[in-house]
Amino acid sequence: MQYSESEHKRLARAYRFKKYGVAYLFLSPNLLFFFIFLVIPFFWVLWLTFNSGGILTPTKFVGLQNWSRVLQDPTAWRSLLNTLYYMAIAIPTVFAIGMGLALLLKRTTKFVTPIRAMIYFPTLAPIVVGALLWIFVVHPDFGLFNTMLRLLGLPIVNWLGNPATALPTIASLEVWRGSGYWTVLFLAALLALPTELFDAAKIDGAGAIRRFWHLTLPLLRPTWLFAIVMATIWNFQLFDSVYILTDGGPNYSTATAVWYIYKNTFQFDKPGYGAAMSFFLLIITLVLAVVELRLMRKKA
């Protein structure tokens, strides 16, 4: 060797810097935002959970008081259970509808673009528009749901006014809003599946339904994995439709975790309490997401 060990090291460093330096340069704005808007606030929020005091009043260290109060707060529990209940309704429904529409769209050959646009529209519509539209759907007197019930000769329902139906009604709005997104996602995944596999299955004697169960579903596993985890994370954050349509009512039946965090943080001026609850939500979300990932991976 004509170069010493240390010279090699130095040259290698310089070479690597040249090789990766540009990458870091391009990453740096993103990293900056990541730190400013995620990492630093994360620790701030954590610090906040151990303090009382509002935005205008000085903070005071209170130890685990916020944490223990959240655990003892029946409304906090209620809102968390409501959120889980909501997810149990909304996620399977939106997936079933999204997948169904995607399967239909895959076969559609006419007016493809306008149909896809129509299906995606609810996702793009601002929540206020969605909420307004939904008021017309669930209105007891002239709403779509009750009109259909009347046509079927069934008793009408006070959708948002009844504690038993309010949360499912919110879920229906969120399903309507979300189905476009999932349809497009599933459709993209479906279109990416190799047609040869389905040809092979046709020859192997699998009918449409069995092709769906034995091929489509398992082949879409990566998509499912993404969808389930993301849907969990997103749906844990149910807030705006609740805030606009019911503000948690009637009688806390639509109080959700993020709604309650918002209330405490911004309206009741208890950011420490809101922060503590946010952390509980973070932990629950993480645990659920990890469990889902594990379950899905294991099957692989």
């Binding site: 929020v45 509002g54 973070l282």
Partner: peptide
């Protein structure tokens, strides 16, 4: 990002509050 909401929710509060504090 797969970072759950809780972080971000808290984030806003934290940013405001800490600045305030």
């Amino acid at each position: 990002t797969a970072t759950p909401a809780a972080t971000e929710t808290g984030t806003a509060a934290a940013t405001a509050t800490t600045a305030a504090a």
